[in-house]
Design a binder for these strands. Structure first.
Length: 572
DNA sequence: GCCGTTTTCGGCCCGACTGTTTTCAGTCG
C-alpha cells in the first residue's frame, strides 16, 4: 500500500495535536508541525525517497528521529508512537481545538477536570454549565464552546479566491471612503493569491483621530463583531468570511504588510535570519536594540536581512528564501506575457458562444491566437463531436481564419482519454489539428496505479500534446482523482507532452505544488481558461496567479510564445 | 525534536485581544 505524503503529514499533525494537549514541550510539538509541512510541500513522494534509500535528514526540519518515523510510516502505514499516544489520550480531543478560542491548554483542563472526551460530551457539559466550574473558565468561554460546536457542524470552509475577490472589492471601496484614510491593502493569503482564502487581513493607514475602526464595524455586510480594539478589529461578514482590519502607522507600513502577508512559515524563517543578525523583526519594523532601522516598505524589510524582494506568491517557505540568498529567484510570469488561450469551447458542444464570437472575444483581449478545443464524442452530455463533426469544425475554422484579421484560430480538441487509455477519436482526424488537448472526464475512481497507467498509455499516442486539468479536482467539491503525478510528469517529459494549469477558479488544476514539480522537471505549461463564455477568458488572471505560486517564468509557459514558435514547440 | 559561519547544548518568532483575574494565561494570526 503506497503511503501518500499527505498521510504522513497528517500523522505528524495528529502527533503534534496530542502532544500539545498532553502538555508536551512546545518546541517538540512545533518540530512535528514543521515536519508535517515539509512533507506536505515535498514535490516528490516520500515513499520513493525511502525506497531509494535517500537521506531524509537532508530535508528541512527532519532529523534522525523523524526520518526514522517517516520510514516506519512508509513501511507499515502507521506510526506506533501515535497509536500508543491515542491509548493515553482520547484522539477526539484534538477535534476540540477546531473550536475557535479553544486551544490545547483548555482542552487539557476540560479533559482533566471533567473527564470529557468527545464532542458530544463536551456539548452536554457546556449545556449543563459544568464548564464554568473549571478554574480559569467562565460564562463567556462556555458560550464560545457552544457556539463553536454549532459552527463546526456547518464545516466552515475556505472560500475560493474568485469569491474572496468578489467580497473584497466592494469592502475595500467602502473602507477607502472613511475619513482620514490614506491606504487600504489586503494582505494574507489573499495577497499571496492562494487558491482558497480563509479570511481577509486588511491593513489601513490613516490620519490620527480617524474613525476608521468605527467605520469598519458599521459596514452593511457585517453579521457580527468578533473583537474591536484601537489597532485591530475582527468581524464576520454575512458570507461567513472573517475580516480582520489592522491600523498601521506609516513608518511601519512595509513591516506590517510583510508580517500580515505571511505565510507564517515564511515569516518565521525571515525573523530567524533577522535574529541571527541581531535584529528584531515584528509588524512595527526592524529593530536594532530599541532603534527602528527599517519598516516603511517591504523592500526595506528584505534588505535588512540581506535579501532581494520576494514576490508575495512565493512566500510559502518552499525554498524562496534560499533562492533569494543565492540570487536564483524566478522572474515570475505576468498577465501581459500571455499571447493566446489554448483551451476554449464553442456552442458546437457545451460552450455558449459561436466560433466567431469567441474569436472576437479573444481578439478584444489582445490575443494573437485562440485554440478551439470542443469536446469529443464520449462526453455525450456536452454533445461531444465525432470525426465528421470535427472535420466540419476544421473547415469552419479555415473559413473564419480567411475572414477575420488580427487573430489566428487554432484547430484543436479536448479529446477524452478512455478507460483503457486509448483516445476517443482516430489518429487520421487528429492529424488535421494544430495540436491536441487530452483529458479524463469519467472513471475518476480507478486505483492510483490504473489511473496513472491509463493516462500514460494515452500519452503514448503521438498526437497527445497537452494534458488538461490533470487531476480533475473541483475545489471544495470534488477531490482530485488518485494519480501518481510524479510518474505522469516523467512520462510527459519523455514523450514531449505538456501540462495545463486550468485557470477556472473552481479548478486551478495543476495545483501550485504540482506546478512547481513540472517546473523542476522542465515541463512546459499551458496556462489557459477552458472558457465556455467570452467573459471566462478573464479567468486567466487566476491561472497566472497559480503559475506564479508554482514559480513559473515566462519561458516556462507555452502560450507566452508567438504563433510560429508555439507551433514548433508543441508538436512532437 | 531540530539545529549550528561564535554553538553538539541551549536555544527555538512576536504582539494584540479576551476573559477571568487583580497581574496574567490562553489563543490567535
Amino acid at each position: 500500500m503506497p503511503v501518500h505524503n499527505s498521510e504522513i503529514s497528517e500523522i505528524f499533525n495528529d502527533m503534534a495535536d496530542l502532544l500539545e494537549i498532553q502538555g508536551s514541550n512546545t518546541f517538540r510539538v512545533r518540530a512535528y508541525r514543521n515536519a508535517a509541512r515539509t512533507i506536505e510541500n515535498l514535490s516528490r513522494s516520500a515513499v520513493d525517497m525511502v525506497n531509494q534509500d535517500e537521506d531524509l535528514t537532508e530535508l528541512k526540519g527532519i532529523g534522525k528521529d523523524l526520518a526514522k518515523k517517516i520510514k516506519e510510516i512508509v513501511e507499515t502505514g502507521e506510526l506506533s508512537m501515535l497509536e500508543d499516544l491515542k491509548k493515553e489520550i482520547p484522539f477526539e480531543l484534538s477535534d476540540f481545538m477546531d473550536i475557535p478560542g479553544i486551544g490545547p491548554k483548555r482542552v487539557h483542563a476540560i479533559y482533566e477536570e471533567l473527564g470529557v472526551k468527545s464532542l458530544d460530551e463536551l456539548k452536554k457539559a457546556a449545556e449543563k454549565h459544568r464548564i464554568q466550574e473549571i478554574g480559569g473558565f467562565g460564562e463567556k468561554t462556555e458560550k464560545i464552546i457552544l457556539e463553536g460546536l454549532k459552527k463546526a457542524d456547518k464545516t466552515e470552509k475556505r472560500l475560493k479566491l474568485s469569491i474572496a475577490d468578489e467580497i473584497a472589492t466592494p469592502l475595500l471601496e467602502y473602507l477607502r471612503k472613511a475619513e482620514g484614510v490614506k491606504e487600504v491593502i489586503v494582505a494574507g493569503s489573499y495577497r499571496r493569491r492562494k487558491e482558497t482564502v480563509g479570511d481577509l487581513d486588511i491593513l489601513v493607514s490613516h490620519k490620527k483621530n480617524s474613525d476608521m475602526m468605527e467605520h469598519f464595524i458599521k459596514y452593511e455586510d457585517v453579521r457580527k463583531v468578533i473583537s474591536s480594539g484601537k489597532t485591530r478589529s475582527s468581524v464576520l461578514l454575512r458570507s461567513g468570511l472573517q475580516v480582520d482590519l489592522r491600523s498601521v502607522a506609516e513608518v511601519s507600513c512595509g513591516a506590517a504588510l510583510h508580517y500580515f502577508t505571511g505565510s507564517k512559515a515564511h515569516n518565521i524563517a525571515i525573523r530567524k535570519i533577522g535574529q541571527s543578525k541581531g535584529l528584531k523583526i515584528n509588524e512595527y519594523g526592524i529593530f536594532k536594540g530599541k532603534k527602528r532601522i527599517a519598516g516603511k516598505t517591504e523592500e526595506e524589510v528584505f534588505r535588512s536581512v540581506g535579501l532581494p524582494y520576494i514576490q508575495p506568491e512565493l512566500r510559502e517557505n518552499r525554498g524562496e528564501i534560499e533562492a533569494a540568498k543565492n540570487k536564483k529567484l524566478p522572474s515570475l510570469v505576468k498577465l501581459k506575457d500571455i499571447r493566446g488561450d489554448l483551451h476554449s469551447h464553442t456552442n458546437r458542444t457545451d460552450g455558449n458562444f459561436s466560433l466567431e464570437e469567441m474569436a472576437k472575444g479573444a481578439k478584444e483581449r489582445g490575443y494573437e491566437y485562440l485554440a478551439i478545443t470542443d469536446h469529443s464524442k464520449h462526453v455525450t452530455v456536452a454533445g461531444g463531436m465525432d470525426s465528421k463533426e470535427l472535420s466540419e469544425q476544421i473547415r469552419e475554422i479555415d473559413k473564419l481564419n480567411d475572414k477575420i484579421d488580427g487573430i489566428t484560430i487554432l484547430k484543436s480538441i479536448e479529446l477524452d482519454i478512455l478507460e483503457d487509455g486509448t483516445l476517443d477519436l482516430p489518429n487520421d482526424i487528429l492529424k488535421e489539428l494544430d495540436f491536441v488537448y487530452c483529458s479524463v472526464h469519467y472513471k475518476f475512481n480507478l486505483s492510483r496505479e490504473k489511473q496513472t497507467e491509463r493516462i500514460i498509455r494515452a500519452m503514448d499516442n503521438p498526437y497527445f500534446n497537452i494534458l488538461a486539468h490533470p487531476t480533475g479536482r473541483l475545489i471544495g467539491k470534488r477531490d482530485p482523482y488518485e494519480v501518481d503525478m510524479e510518474q505522469l510528469m516523467k512520462a510527459a517529459k519523455e514523450r514531449g507532452c505538456f501540462m495545463e494549469i486550468n485557470s477556472n477558479p473552481e479548478r486551478l488544476d495543476l495545483s501550485d505544488i504540482h506546478t512547481k514539480m513540472a517546473k523542476d522537471m522542465r515541463i512546459k505549461i499551458s496556462i489557459s481558461t477552458d472558457a465556455h463564455n467570452i467573459t471566462d477568458f478573464d479567468y486567466i488572471r487566476f491561472g497566472i496567479c497559480q503559475g506564479r505560486r508554482g514559480w513559473l517564468e515566462k519561458q516556462d509557459v507555452l502560450n507566452t510564445r508567438g504563433l510560429d514558435e508555439l507551433k514548433k514547440l508543441i508538436n512532437r
